[in-house]
Design a protein around this nucleic acid. Structure first.
Lengths: 224, 224
DNA sequence: ACGACTATCTTGACAGTGTCAAGATAGTCG
DNA sequence: CGACTATCTTGACACTGTCAAGATAGTCGT
């Protein structure tokens, strides 16, 4: 048990500090690492405390609850995701390609940071209404997404729906793909080898659909 | 605490049985009710045992683990979902309408049985490879979905993609919508009032997209 | 420089959790 | 009727989150 997290120990930078120095941040980072190894179920306050080199009750002085710590970890997750999504925007290219890239980045994040993704979008996610930090990080992530979608819509001259709506639809689809993959949804065995291909196809289907729908509505404008 | 589950007590049908009679099934049903009230986090072996009127270690003789019980509960959830989806097939009507109905049913299930949905598709879901009962129930649910999609594809003369692929795409999208709603994903406040409308629009977008993509490919067949 | 004062961390305790071992009980079969 | 098995109970264990009380270190007023 002890040897399971060999390099995970996060020690204060300045040993002279009896007071850890920046325990709050250290706890979050430690929690992130433990989460990645042991999953949501294995993320324990006491384990985090021990790995950070403090007593089991030390976290209480920086986080009211275990939930509060989880909220901060989730917020950190949102920030990481935001950053990755922003990276997509930097690459200038065909906007349909960019859209696909966007989705791939999202799904890629989910696959790479499985447990973090589960934490953020799963049942263990804290109520964001109670944690402003989490809320802000989440909204920033959403805004990043919408901003990208708006750019792409201009490019593709899609005008038949609002950016928010399109972003939501895209988000839902992406979220679904990621969720099904990450949470190991029950998929027939003969489909498992081509799961990756299916995922790509599913994305294309949606994007083509959006564009096609936009073209259609340009010819036959629908007031609704 | 005791008064929180007033009518939840599931007692043996035949009082004369010291041996509960059918404790296994009773535990699953009790767990379903506790799950609905207290959520995944509140689903406790001891609580289930007490509500079923047996000692805290009694479940061990019917379920190897807590996870094993959860697996059975999840399997039951899949069966409920399957049944509801099948109900959609019974209603004969325009197949696009049927497709929308299908998605609505799925999302409706997620909204009505929030905690059960979280259990099935969340991190707490047991590995289906270890629980044949769960696997079978899941596959049956998937097959139900595919069967419906095949019917609809025939109706709409969609031939440019395999049913499995379309089903997966549809499933992913639906799963995403349900997941975002159920797990209270961070959504900007100004969008919350129109969340329902967005959900409907998102579905339509996908379905229109699929159909449009099918039409397109009929005119310009793409070998890939 | 010295004594309050506060922030930070430790120690110890508590109820609640899942799980295991050992014993009690009831139904079944030879 | 006695052995046998399935089923359930009791008691214990390590582990969890949380709280209260005390110890420690840094800061500030005087």
């Amino acid at each position: 048990m002890d040897s399971k997290h060999p390099g995970i120990m996060i020690t204060p930078k300045d040993q002279s500090h009896y007071h850890h120095g920046n325990l709050r941040e250290a706890l979050i980072q430690t929690a992130l690492q433990i989460l990645a190894v042991d999953g949501v179920a294995g993320l324990t306050l006491r384990k985090v405390a021990k790995a950070a080199g403090v007593s089991h009750a030390a976290p209480a002085h920086h986080f009211k609850d275990k939930t509060a710590l989880v909220a901060s970890v989730a917020a950190e997750g949102f920030r990481i995701l935001s950053k990755e999504l922003l990276g997509v925007a930097d690459i200038h290219q065909d906007s349909k390609e960019q859209l696909i890239r966007l989705v791939r980045t999202y799904v890629g994040f989910a696959q790479r940071e499985v447990e973090l993704f589960r934490l953020i979008f799963g049942p263990s996610a804290p109520d964001y209404r109670e944690y402003p930090e989490l809320y802000e990080a989440g909204i920033e992530c959403w805004n990043t997404l919408v901003q990208l979608v708006i750019t792409i819509m201009k490019d593709q001259e899609i005008t038949n729906c609002e950016p928010d709506l399109l972003a939501f639809s895209l988000w839902a689809h992406t979220q679904g793909v990621a969720s099904l993959i990450v949470n190991q949804a029950v998929i027939p065995p003969h489909l498992i080898p081509i799961k990756g291909a299916m995922q790509d196809k599913a994305i294309e289907l949606l994007i083509d659909g959006i564009i096609a729908a936009s073209r259609k509505s340009k010819k036959t404008p629908d007031g609704e």
